[in-house]
Design a protein around this nucleic acid. Sequence first.
DNA 1: CGTCGGTTTGATCTAGTTCAACCGCCGTGG
DNA 2: CCACGGCGGTTGAACTAGATCAAACCGACG
Lengths: 248, 248
Amino acid sequence: MHTTNRPRVACEHCPLRKLPVFRPFTAEELAYVSRFKRGELLVKTGDLILTEGQHSEQLYTLLSGWAFRYKALEDGRRQIVNYLLPGDLIGLQASTIGEMQHSVEALSSAVLCVFRREQVPELFRSHPELGFDVTWLASREERMLDENLLSVGRRSAFERAAYLLAVLHRRASALGMMKGARPTIPITQQHLADTLGLSLVHTNKTLKRLAAANLIRWHDHACEVLDPAGLTEAAGWSGSRETIRPLI
Amino acid sequence: MHTTNRPRVACEHCPLRKLPVFRPFTAEELAYVSRFKRGELLVKTGDLILTEGQHSEQLYTLLSGWAFRYKALEDGRRQIVNYLLPGDLIGLQASTIGEMQHSVEALSSAVLCVFRREQVPELFRSHPELGFDVTWLASREERMLDENLLSVGRRSAFERAAYLLAVLHRRASALGMMKGARPTIPITQQHLADTLGLSLVHTNKTLKRLAAANLIRWHDHACEVLDPAGLTEAAGWSGSRETIRPLI
DNA sequence: CGTCGGTTTGATCTAGTTCAACCGCCGTGG
DNA sequence: CCACGGCGGTTGAACTAGATCAAACCGACG
């Protein structure tokens, strides 16, 4: 992991902000957030960004790349609870409750904007709308977790896998990450298994079925989504749109 | 459902606030929250408090009683995502994102404090610490969901049931709801099944095993926890303490 | 060229589902 | 006062989705 103290990208010129999924900020809000930012953190695939039990001093926003949040049982069984894409906050729990109850690991090389957690209360004081935005993002995370829980608790393996890939594809698409030729989701089957609550072998067999139905293709150690609409349907999901959200 | 316009309990005399789990509020904060409160809502067992897809005008805090949040698939499969106990916020999603993505139903007769969602931004503006508190509560909900997801995804039926009952007992205990003679959790086995992601019959058989181990007892259509520590251990859980939290 | 992480496949096993009754209790209507 | 129906809980038998075990494959990399 490598930290640069000087912000490389000033928030005013943040490439993410140009995307239509993010709500426009006023010049004043932008200037404040830019001052709020302490620097950037560069990580590579497999790097641990935060660990369970830790009292992190940092709050991050993912600027580029993929990451995931997970929890583990003593005996090693692991559950991935959600994925993190550009614009997502990382480490809010440490800033509120004080201690992380989950770990975060990078799925690809990634860049994070770094904030100091002690400054969060100050953000709420000086910019209440931004404080509200943080709550908004926490609500969105809660919504995603509800959906994951519904999926793991009540969907069949086939539906579950379809749902997960459909969601990841949709989220990434909204961020323009699924453009280019053969864009893929940089995930291993072990990650999928740990997300779906299935064994590795059964996950593999389920993915083969999705591939046989021409919904996905596996190559270069990653998943290419061939038919997003088909996946959504296979999941029995009435895929809700990505709502416009704040970017802090 | 029955609404009373006049607050029955002024926040300054709220019986919940006396409990050590809630952080003390300043007189000023208390006065503000009391003005913020619009009235009370009385519901009885089985009443729907909020429904998926609805744009609720209200934000609630549960004052007494039990409730639960759930989502359902088109074909009726239902997943309970979490339980709500006194002090918990209900309907925050509607106040932030605008639309509820889950339903809320009362498990027992209950009393809710009613707030108007349009006043939430005003709360953030005039009382940033309270805004921060709302975020705090949202973070706590996220933490609970993470744990539920870990449970449903990775624990066996036996561990899962033990975990759920241990958590509910612990949460209720912190609120002084598990005192008296033979206090119970007012839940049916169908609720448990829909929470655990198991079928009703298997849930029943699993509960019998917990009862055979003298960890719980079923009577009066409710669950009595006989051995909280035993349950926690059966769950393979290192039960974290209930943290001091805000009450809005 | 051996090793290692990720993927694949088949065989066997089992945790949990589904189906089908049945029981006790309580509230309702005749 | 009694019959009936529905809800919640209980139990056993048959079944299957998914787990576990075992082995092999394949490309990358030192």
